[in-house]
Design a protein around this nucleic acid. Structure first.
Lengths: 190, 190
DNA sequence: AGAAAACGCAACAGCAATGATGCAGATAGG
DNA sequence: CCTATCTGCATCATTGCTGTTGCGTTTTCT
């Protein structure tokens, strides 16, 4: 319950908030120690305006984290993780997540203390992810001896690495390689 | 050619330098924005002593990065990457790297500008790594269609992820899982 | 059109980190 | 043992970021 709308912001203000969050992501991704001044400049906004909406730098960070976490959760949901066939769901989710995580890399890497909305969303996403992997296991796409938590972490790592080394490649292409590597590794194919 | 010993430091001073570097790693790993004061305290040293050896915070960072990079290069060499059988080399190197990277996680994640000794060492390590993977490919441990640079990046990612989630597990156990995952993924085994 | 809300600008106080300096006491090494 | 080196401490100037406040102007909403 951080920024639960006390009362609806004016259209004006809402734009500013979005601009600040997007600018913060852009600027902080390049320099995590960047000042509020730099963020304000990138947002096309005065520094005082940021302080009007976010009490402190810390508050801005939390807002940034929850905003990004919500978008990520949305990206997962859009892949229909519970109804689509496992392979289809995995591919769609991966492609969606690649886009969101590419645009909000810094915010999603932000440490969120337990209890925050961002942390809750993260756990929720983890659970959905494991659920999909379980369905994949049931469909014999994954070895029944596999540790799904390890598989999930490897999956996350593959996504991060793909974005780090080739951020501008087509998401579907990256997703295909990620899933292929996740399931079959680098070894010779049967 | 950053700290190329102009003349041998006194035994005293050399201990201080090591203490500072180790303390910096410990402190900065928890809070990348920590102050020199905190680092000095953790090293059991006065803040001015740090400034005597390292002109600026930036200089300390670079020294930290090259120090860690040297240890990492050593860890790779110790695995006999050119002579041992590919699988043995991969396992030994992985276990060695896990130990070094666990102890110098922050320093090794530090961005080093091209031309610095750290960057050169990093490229050198990358090359050795690809060389091992090529030998593995020649031994039919890796598909001959595989993109070795992607395999290398996946390998690095698996190492990082292992350390992030289970830093205190036996390196050999982690190494075994890393290589297994790298080669065969999570899919069902033949 | 008029009230309420939001904005830019300017200015201010406070604070913490950086980096430098001088000096007196400890320590290593020939 | 004697000197050169190293360290701790205390101090200082500088700098940059943060967070706040007040005021005049612009924008939104009804």
């Amino acid at each position: 319950m951080g920024d639960t709308a006390a009362r609806p912001l004016r259209a004006d203000a809402e734009r500013s908030v979005r601009a600040v969050l997007e600018a913060a992501e852009r600027v902080l991704a390049e320099d995590p120690g960047a000042s509020m001044e730099q963020i304000a400049a990138a947002a096309g906004v005065a520094r005082t305006t940021i302080h009007r909406r976010f009490a402190s730098r810390q508050a801005l960070m939390e807002a940034l984290a929850t905003s990004a976490a919500r978008q990520l959760a949305q990206a997962v949901d859009d892949g229909r993780p519970d109804t689509a066939p496992p392979l289809v769901a995995m591919h769609r989710i991966t492609a969606n997540v690649l886009q969101v995580k590419g645009a909000w890399a810094f915010a999603l890497g932000l440490p969120s203390d337990p209890g925050s909305e961002a942390a809750i969303l993260q756990r929720d996403i983890n659970d959905r992810c494991v659920a999909v992997l379980e369905r994949a296991k049931a469909a014999h796409l994954i070895a029944d001896t596999a540790d799904l938590d390890w598989v999930r972490r490897v999956y996350y790592a593959l996504i991060s690495e793909s974005l780090r080394s080739e951020p501008d490649t087509d998401p579907d292409t990256l997703a295909a390689r990620i899933i292929d590597t996740l399931l079959y590794g680098a070894g010779p194919r049967p």
